[in-house]
Design a protein around this nucleic acid. Sequence first.
DNA 1: ATGCCTGCAAAGCTTTTGCAGATGC
DNA 2: GCATCTGCAAAAGCTTTGCAGGCAT
Lengths: 145, 145
Amino acid sequence: MRQSPKEPGMEAKDLKKAGLKATLPRLRILQILEESNQKHMSAEDVYKTLIEGDVDVGFATVYRVLTQFEAAGLVIRHHFDTGHSVFELNRGGHHDHMVCLKTGKVIEFKNAEIERLQNEIADKHGYVLEDHSLVLYVRPKDSKK
Amino acid sequence: MRQSPKEPGMEAKDLKKAGLKATLPRLRILQILEESNQKHMSAEDVYKTLIEGDVDVGFATVYRVLTQFEAAGLVIRHHFDTGHSVFELNRGGHHDHMVCLKTGKVIEFKNAEIERLQNEIADKHGYVLEDHSLVLYVRPKDSKK
DNA sequence: ATGCCTGCAAAGCTTTTGCAGATGC
DNA sequence: GCATCTGCAAAAGCTTTGCAGGCAT
């Protein structure tokens, strides 16, 4: 079910599939999440980008749409320790995150061994791992605290 | 204010050491965190316990005290995906958490290999691991989604 | 046409802050 | 006594919701 990367109607289809009408705010927000330099955006980031692009969308709509996208599996909501949620387009490949305490930069990483160990731990306690959240808070090697 | 059978005055000392006066609300909150069945309590949990114990402390004070305790390293604040912070007495031994999606129960666990891998990952990216947050969201083996 | 969407404003929740009076040392 | 601390209420920050009009299909 993979289509060419820059297919214009592709987003609209994804929305339909999720039972959501292909409206301007939704398409724009999807586009922003897709094209932004930062892969992880807060609702405010998205809102500001919309305004800058002369699209008059309300803050409430941004939240509503992002929440609908989350429910539809189109985006993933993260709760880093920043006081607000950040949203990331769900491109399918699971990964974890590293947040730089100096710059705020978010780095993605994957580690199969950690994934495996997590399942093992849950299992050992009589549970099934449903989801997990792993965030490393880091600092550049050459920086002082 | 009753004295604990175990080590009376010890908490007060800890407070002093942190530059905090040993006041009734602080001592009580410390005691609650120490003696509660649930090791992980929200500000509201602590507040309710205080009220039940006929100690008239304001909500704001609970937050203020817990925040001070966190700054002093006496407690650790966690941000599970529950919409509010939970606090845990810092007993020294680091561990991660598993949250049961069915019962809300919090289980602690330790895994040296995961810890090691985290450091390795940060290092590989040119960073030093300062802190991390790992939460497994799990479901009992025999339960349906 | 009609039912889903949106913008606005207002409310909701958790957490923080200002201030006057109270308390620990 | 004096600085620190507390209670109350009010505010702040993020997010959600109610409602009346607007838009996609």
